[in-house]
Structures are given as C-alpha cells and as structure tokens.
C-alpha cells in the first residue's frame, strides 16, 4: 500500500520522534509513505486566526503539490495539520469560487483534491493482525488514557471518522495492542494548543487538569496523536509540577510509538527516549 505523506513542521523538529515512529510502524505494516515534494507549513493556528485567505492558500499549495504527484490520499499525523488540510480541502470542494480564486493565486489548477487522513484512520485500516506481529512487548496490560485533544475529532463534518464527544477509535487500537483503555473525562478537552509560548499559564492549567484526571483514573500512560498536545502534556509537566506541587509525572506517548512497541520495535527505534517524562515499560 502506498500513501501520500505530509509530516508537517512539528515532525521535522519538536516532534521528530513522532515522525520516526510513524515511518517505522508504516514500514512494518508494509505501507510506503510518499512525502509531498517541497511541502510547506499548513499555517497552523497563526495563519487561520489572522487571515483566512492565507490559511487557505498555504493548505491549497500542499494539496496542489500532492495532486501533481498523483497522490489520492495524504496521511497527516499532526492533528492540527490534519484539521487545517481537511478543512481547506472541504472548502475547496464546497466552494468552487474560492477554489478558482486560490488557483489563480497559485497559478495552477488543482485537478484532484486528495483526501486527508490521520494516523488513527490509517491504523484502523490496516487491521489488527499486523499491529501485534511480535507479542510480549512493552505495553501489555498498561492502563491507557487515549487523548484525542480537540482537532482530531472536531468538527464532525465531511471528514468525521469518529464521534466528537465519545470517540472510541484509539481505544480500539490500544486494545488490539494488549493495553487497557480507561474511561475518562478529558479525552477531548483542549490543552491550550498554540498558547504554549505566549500564554504558558493557560496551557499549564489546562494540561494539569487533563493529566490529573488521567492519573485519578489510574492511567499508567497517556496516548496522543498530536504533536502540540504532546509538547504541552510532556514538556510542560515540569512547569505543571512547579505550579501544582501534588502533580505526579505520567508518561505521554504518541500513538505510533505505542503501536510500535507492540510490534516489537525498541524505544530507541521509536524515539521514545526523546521525551521529557521517561517511559518505563512494565515488561521490557
């Protein structure tokens, strides 16, 4: 199976382990990832909150490049990129006028708008067998809090693949991997996302609430599929501890790392050693 790949900026820097583990697991699953040539940043939050046309153009350029490469489907592992690219694709499909305007700006017509999928959808598709190829690995019986954050399952529009209030798709995957998903309240609550630097105080409060609920419900780890969530939940735990004395550390893993462990890949192969809060697997 071949699929287009849009890593997005985070995966080339702050979330390089996410990129590493996505590529590694894809390799094991027999999926060939074809990176979009010369892709650009989707504009993230900063673009769409200041100029709608800018945000649309930035995403559209990526869609154009992908369609020129003949890619019908693009994997965007970053939830924010996934949200921006699919919302833009939706707008271009629904509004021919907007599409025309953007095409004039880019100087080229987008012949076929590719479908954007996220990592959860990709794993859902390959099925259970391959994800647990080698047994007896790192995450058996781990109590797992699956954290969707905000952008993965919202809004429930064209690209919706799971319920926006009570999503279950990640739970199904971690169950296949031998872990025990917990039922908790904060799986779709926002971590503060792009406010991480300018309003760290907000991010610390929100992330603290999320991690506390996971802890209270006896989670061993939190799983996420978003580099922004990961940064806030993992890197900010130091700041959380500073503000909330009672905070107990909890490791936060990318979904791909988690799946990789159950495939028998090592922590180093998956980049788990790059996290701020170390993850000590129970059985390894």
């Amino acid at each position: 199976m071949k699929i287009g790949y849009y890593p997005g900026c985070s995966l080339t820097g702050t979330a390089k382990e996410y990129d590493k583990s996505v590529r590694k697991t894809a390799e094991v699953l027999g999926i060939e990832l074809i990176e979009i040539d010369d892709w650009n940043c989707c504009g993230a939050t900063s673009a769409h909150i200041t100029s709608h046309r800018l945000a649309l153009s930035l995403s559209a350029r990526n869609l154009l490049l992908a369609s020129k490469q003949g890619l019908k489907e693009i994997l965007a592992p970053c939830a924010a990129c996934y949200s921006r690219l699919s919302l833009s694709a939706e707008e271009l499909i629904k509004k021919p006028d907007a599409k025309k305007e953007i095409e004039e700006l880019l100087g080229e017509e987008i012949l076929e708008i590719p479908k954007i999928i996220n990592l959860v959808q990709l794993y859902q598709r390959v099925g259970a067998e391959k994800m647990i190829e080698k047994k007896g690995t790192g995450n058996a019986k781990l109590k797992t809090a699956c954290y969707y954050g905000c952008l993965l399952v919202r809004p429930s529009g064209l690209n919706s693949f799971d319920d926006s209030e009570e999503p279950q798709s990640m739970e199904k995957i971690v169950t296949i991997c031998g872990a025990e998903p917990i039922d908790w309240n904060y799986k779709t609550e926002c971590c503060g996302a792009a406010h991480s630097i300018a309003r760290k105080d907000i991010v610390v409060d929100l992330s603290h609430k999320i991690l506390t609920d996971a802890k209270t419900r006896k989670a061993d780890i939190v799983i996420t599929a978003c580099p922004m969530c990961h940064t806030n939940l993992d890197m900010r735990q130091k700041d959380i501890k500073k503000k909330f004395d009672k905070h107990e550390k909890i490791p936060v893993l990318y979904l791909s790392e988690f799946v990789g462990l159950s495939m028998g890949l090592t922590k180093e192969e998956l980049g788990i050693d790059l996290h701020f809060v170390p993850f000590e697997s129970k059985t390894v």
């Binding site: 900026c9 080339t12 820097g13 702050t14 979330a15 390089k16 010369d38 892709w39 650009n40 200041t50 100029s51 046309r53 800018l54 649309l56 153009s57 930035l58 350029r61 700006l105 880019l106 890197m235 790059l274 701020f276």
Partner: peptide, 30 residues
Amino acid sequence: AMFMKGKIGILPHNIKDRKGMKDIFEKTEV
C-alpha cells in the same frame, strides 16, 4: 534539553520554492 534532543534545529528548514511562498503571503496576508 530541546537542543540536546535535536528538537530545535540550528538551521532553518528551507523549501525550494521560497519565492512562491513569499508571493502567497504578499497576496493574502492581512
């Protein structure tokens, strides 16, 4: 720590078509 983990690169990640990028911004930026 971010540096040590290689999460913040020293050099920028330049794309090839930087002119095109600048063009998009000039036409759409607020």
